[in-house]
Simulated scan of single mutants.
Amino acid sequence: MFFITCDSMFTEIFNNSYVILGLIFLSVTLTTALLVIIGQGLLASYETRYTGRMGGMMEELFIFQNAKIIFWINMIGALLAVLFCMLLSRNVLLTIIAGVIGFNIPRIFLFFARKRRYEKFDRQFVDALNVLANGLRSGMTLVQSVEIVEKEFSPPLSQEFGLALRENRLGVPIEDALVNMSKRIPNDDLRLVTISINTVFTLGGNLVELFTNIAVLIRERAKFEKKTKALTAQGKMQGIVVGFLPTGLGILLFFADPSLMNYMFGTAVGIIALVAMILLQLIGFFLIQKITAIEI
């Protein structure tokens, strides 16, 4: 009798639509709260890793800002790119690609800024060696010659040599401070100079001749590199055309006739063909770049 009464009571409860709606609301709320908690943990973990990497890159560029700002700029950029793509096209694949590109725009900007910084340092370094040689020739010490380089040159070379001087004032030997600079700047010539300075300080030698000879070597190699770039420019341009011309044509056709191009994004055969095309383009591009890249 008791079981019959309980069964009829539960039947009446579950036949009540308000109870069912309440249970559905409770389950959805708990699931949403659980997903939010998990998402917050994953987001915080990714934010910590991302800000660590970006903070190191920003320190290399002497940009002393909070890396969390870059992270949230990335998030806003990804959101705006997704919304913009959804307004133009409701294609899921294009929306995902737009979100990834929007999220990585600040990172791409910092990557090219760092590349330009290294290239400018390479151009300044030859003249800095001549200044160091002239300073030593006039009777100055290496530290005094480095101070002249810091004052006479513009960033990034003045920043890097200035940091080496600050390390020296804190008790680090100047040769070790220059070694630390060579670890921050991926420059083979700088690494050669620092190794040579340590050798001279350990075994003896003439720093004036060392700086002069290395400067001459760098200039002659730069001339040869320019000639090589001029001879391989046509092959590199072919690689760029092979890599980007089909993509450009696809974008133009998409805006000219979206219904025709939707077959490429909305069907399995089209997606497979699109992936194969991208892979073949990348293979052709990198093969041509590899052939025309000559190490000096």
Rank of each mutant, 00 (worst) to 15 (best):
L282Q: 13
G235P: 00
N262K: 14
G139A: 07
L142K: 10
L35N: 02
F121N: 11
G205P: 04
V193M: 12
I97R: 06
M140Q: 06
V172D: 13
L61G: 09
F109Q: 04
L157Y: 06
L165D: 02
V36Y: 13
I174P: 00
L35H: 04
T141I: 03
M86I: 04
A256Y: 11
Q159N: 15
L210R: 02
V200D: 03
N262D: 15
R184Q: 11
G239F: 04
M181D: 11
L34H: 05
L253F: 15
V216K: 14
A222C: 00
I218N: 05
I291W: 09
M9P: 03
P156Y: 08
A128N: 07
G284N: 15
E220M: 05
S45Q: 05
A230N: 15
I294L: 04
I197G: 03
V193T: 07
T141F: 08
G135A: 04
M237T: 09
G135C: 06
G99P: 15
P155G: 06
T212V: 01
N74P: 00
N74Y: 01
L280I: 15
K227H: 10
Q40P: 06
L34A: 08
G239W: 08
A273K: 13
A33G: 08
N187Y: 07
F71R: 01
V216E: 15
R191Y: 03
R123P: 00
V82T: 13
P173E: 10
N130W: 05
L26G: 11
L61P: 06
G204D: 04
K290V: 02
L192M: 01
A133G: 03
F121W: 10
G162R: 03
G270I: 11
G52Q: 05
T267G: 12
K183I: 00
G135I: 06
L287H: 05
F14W: 11
S182G: 09
R191N: 03
A276H: 05
R169H: 08
M58G: 00
G266T: 12
S259M: 11
L23T: 01
K236M: 13
I278W: 14
R49P: 04
V275K: 02
N187I: 00
N206Y: 05
L192P: 00
G41W: 06
A128T: 06
P155T: 07
N91H: 06
Q144K: 07
R137I: 02
E147R: 12
I195A: 12
F254H: 14
T51H: 05
A81K: 14
L245S: 07
F153Q: 01
L280S: 15
K151Q: 14
G162W: 05
T95N: 14
L129F: 10
D188N: 09
S138A: 12
V275Q: 04
L245R: 06
L260M: 09
E12V: 06
L178E: 09
L260I: 02
I291N: 09
V193E: 09
D127T: 11
T141S: 15
L282H: 10
